[in-house]
Amino acid sequence: MRHGFRISVGAHPGGVGEVNAAFADFAEAHALPAEVRRSVNVALDELLANVLAHAKTGRDPCSVTVEVELDEERVTVTLTDDGPPFDPFEQEAPDTTLSVEERPIGGLGLHLVGQLMDQVSYQRREGHNVVVLVKQLVNG
């Protein structure tokens, strides 16, 4: 049995919260494990905040569509935005061994997404950035 939903938001600060709230409601309705729901919430926050940051520097208004699909084994999240080309998984991994004093503030978000999800992918398709995230419902 497949379930899912789709939500589109403009690239404005409230948009991230709208998507995270919609996903939390969906997760509750379908009794997703809390760990899975939290990992997806973090990934959504990172990616949407990132799109928003890039949209601010762009000239054109930007919107993001988030599509969530759930089956017995996994939850799949597809984010499509019409912002400038940006592959979130091509960025350099931060140095996570630095001390408090040495550590720059920032640079961690996209690294977190790659680690928290079981699969991530990026495609530039017809003028859109398409990011697909997969999280298995059961480990292993």
Binding site: R38, N41, V42, D45, E46, A49, G106, L108, G109, L112
Partner: peptide
């Protein structure tokens, strides 16, 4: 409930 990089900052 959860923390993202914005919270870590």
């Amino acid at each position: 409930d959860y923390i993202s990089s914005a919270g870590l900052r």
